[in-house]
Amino acid sequence: MSNEEPDDKKKSPENTYLKTERGEEIMHIMQKGAEFTHELIKENERLRFRNAQVEEINKTLEMSVAGGVGTDEINKLLKKLSSIEDEKEKLLEKYKAVEEENKDFANRYLEIEAENNNLANLYVASYQLHSTLNFNEVLRIILEIIINLIGAEDFAIMMLDEKTHKLSAVATEGIDQKDVPVSVQGEGIVGKAAKSGENYFADPLPPGGTPVDLNKPLVCIPMKIKERVIGTIVIYKLLQQKEAFNKLDYELFTLLAGHTATAIFSSKLYSESERKLSTIQGFIDLLTKQPQK
């Protein structure tokens, strides 16, 4: 089978016309392509030129920066940039320092606040203890301080009899006074604390809800005038919400050890002097009174 067209078809005028028209179209497309290629070449040249220009500017700038030579403006800007960077670093350092200082101030404020609170408690305790010369009132104030400032629920104030060397309860809270065992100085926890003058703290504190054992106190504070023990404060149970002793509690115990002793001693002396004064007054009245006729 031949691919060639038949001779009558090749030579027809219609066929010739079609061929010419198609050729013109191809020529037109080719021309357009040539124009487009030409434009592309031109654009390419323009871009290469622009690229060369930019590279030249970059080189100049790099040389200016590296060599320190360049326009005044660039130098000025670089200097300014450098000073701003320095300033920023300094400000950041200063900010850090201020922040540290602030933290320090905040911590110190909290410490001072806590110390202030502690001092308030100590001041009130001391003020109240020395606000009266009545023995029973002094005892009541000691009870109040131990309940409200320490947070104890069951406790006793025991006085030492210097003749028998025995300690017995004179005031209690939460327990019956007659249930508190009498202690002999030097024996048992209470007696030993009264002998040595040293505070006793159970370590560790038994967990909340542990039944009270009157022979095993949690705390025993000897009440002392200098080295002379006049009695003890014995705590058997703390309030439900009181789980442990803090710094303030120990300071309060120290205050109680000294100030309760002087308050109790002064009030006793005062009561005795009042009684003696009354007796003497009665005796003087008896002597000076004119016998009735």
Binding site: N117, A120, N121, Y123, V124, A125, Y127, Q128, S131, I141, E144, I145, I147, N148, L149
Partner: peptide, 12 residues
């Protein structure tokens, strides 16, 4: 009722 507590609360 406790003068000690009253003073402490007032003081605070």
């Amino acid at each position: 009722d406790s003068p000690t507590m009253r003073q402490l609360i007032t003081f605070s």
